[in-house]
Amino acid sequence: MKGRESKVAFENSAENIRLLTFFVGEEQYCADISIAHDIIKVPAITYIPRLPEYIKGVINLRGKVVPICDLALRFGVEGEEYDGQSCVIVFSIRGTQVGFLVKRVGDVIDITEKQICPTVNERSFISHIVTTEEGSFVKKINLEEVFEA
């Protein structure tokens, strides 16, 4: 954690937000790290029929049955290929755990409130746009909306 991050002293105050970034397709997205529960390698997924295509099925996460949602398909990105770097991020949303299949996990970034800007549409899958230290844009996912049917 030394080097690049060391110049930004991280204080766990209201202005500082810690985010987990990950890739879906070629795009970089992020979500609040405090609700991330697990990051695991893609396990054996039990397929459940008669559900939307983006729900891949369920997994056995240490004795808990957790549903898996393919974020690429959820966002309408077609032909996503998963490899050894792909993984499942389990988030707690409204008290339940849901696993999201992503191409790969990026980084943990600390940002300040100035770097985050809300999007216009409340119903969108993207709630905020984050500008990183390097000046690139990362989309913050509205997990509540992704959770909705």
Partner: peptide, 12 residues
């Protein structure tokens, strides 16, 4: 085990 509320939403 009941299905997760996430799946219940999709009328499982």
């Amino acid at each position: 085990k009941p299905f997760s509320p996430y799946l219940a939403q999709h009328n499982i």
